Simulated scan of single mutants.
Amino acid sequence: MTTTPVTLPKRDQSARLENWSRAFYRFRQSWLSVIGLAIVVALVLVALFAPFIVPHPEHVAGGTNTSARFMAPGADYWFGTNALGQDVFSLVLVGSQVSLFSGLAVVVIAIVVGGVIGAIAGYFGGWIDEILMRITDLLLTIPSLILAMAVAAALGTGVTNMIIAIAITWWPAYARLVRGEVIGKKEEQFITASKALGAGWPRILGRHILPNIMSPIIVKASLDMGFAVLTVASLGFVGIGVKAPTPEWGTLLSVARADMPDYWWTAVFPGCAIFLAVLAFNLLGDGLRDVMDPKARR
């Protein structure tokens, strides 16, 4: 008797590729979302390569040129100069590093801390859920900017302390979001099957639940990036965030407000950078929300 070898079918990748192509098609249908993505990519590239492309790196390091004080925008200084004769264009370029990467760090920390707390609360429920959610509710009752200012003032100035202060006020929103998603997912059949096979709660959360609830988290993170940049700039503006001479958009605005309106360029260009970053991340977030909306999938 001869036996015919059984060949297991290989996993077809066409379905996954088709899903990605449909998602990309939906995304590019909104030209505002495409513009937002392009601006975000440009801002990230500028932040990464800013130290290598600034025309006046000595000004970024704290150097001054009093003979070029308050020069209007022109061929030599594209964004003009400030009260110390420093090139505003160079300061804005390097300031993008602190503003964007600080905002990214805030969002990442908030996702990690809020995700862990929300996942544990949603999965176990009971008294664990009550304790964790009451702490979360307590933090949500306090205005985030006021709480961030209080924590930053207590910790002291500096980039690290500023990031910690803002992240403390942001993780409760992610905890609430993840908790709700976990409660909905843990009752589905594939989770029941995993429990029947003897999988522990770390494996169920890490391998089965969390990967299936990433879409709303990604959308919220993309929308929150703009507000994180704005909050970083706000703390720098009031003087409890990044301190001079470290260039940061909010700090540049704070220093330049004394020069308004006669030397408008010292404040307008850092303000435009903040506006552009917030607008770009919001446009990108709207596009991702349309792509990852389950009701939009066929």
Results as ranks from 00 to 15, higher is better:
Q86F: 01
A83V: 00
V92Q: 03
G115C: 08
G114C: 12
L93E: 06
V106M: 05
A83D: 00
V113L: 15
V112P: 03
L93A: 12
S99N: 12
V113E: 09
S90K: 02
I117R: 12
I111M: 14
G95W: 08
L100I: 15
G118F: 07
V108M: 07
L84A: 01
V116Q: 08
L93R: 07
A105K: 10
I109T: 13
L100H: 05
T81N: 07
L104I: 13
I120G: 11
V113I: 15
G103E: 02
V94R: 04
D87C: 07
S99M: 08
N82G: 00
Q97C: 04
A105N: 07
I109Y: 12
G114T: 14
A119F: 15
I120K: 10
V113H: 12
I120L: 15
I109K: 13
F89V: 03
L91N: 02
V107D: 01
Q97Y: 06
V88Q: 14
G114D: 13
Q86R: 03
V106K: 04
I109M: 14
V113Q: 12
D87E: 04
I111A: 05
V106D: 04
I117M: 15
S102M: 10
I117L: 15
A110Y: 11
V108T: 08
G114W: 12
I120N: 09
G118L: 08
G85R: 07
N82L: 01
V106I: 15
V94W: 00
N82F: 02
G103M: 04
I109S: 09
V107G: 04
I117Q: 10
V92W: 02
F101T: 06
G103K: 08
V92I: 14
I111L: 13
S99A: 14
V88N: 11
G118I: 07
L84M: 01
S102Q: 07
G103N: 05
D87T: 04
Q86Y: 00
V108K: 01
V92Y: 03
T81E: 08
F101G: 11
A83K: 01
L100P: 03
F89Q: 05
A110L: 07
V113F: 15
D87S: 04
G95E: 09
F89L: 12
V98Y: 04
G85Y: 07
L91H: 00
S96W: 11
V116R: 11
G95Q: 09
G103F: 04
V108I: 15
V88E: 14
F89G: 09
F101I: 09
V112E: 03
L104A: 14
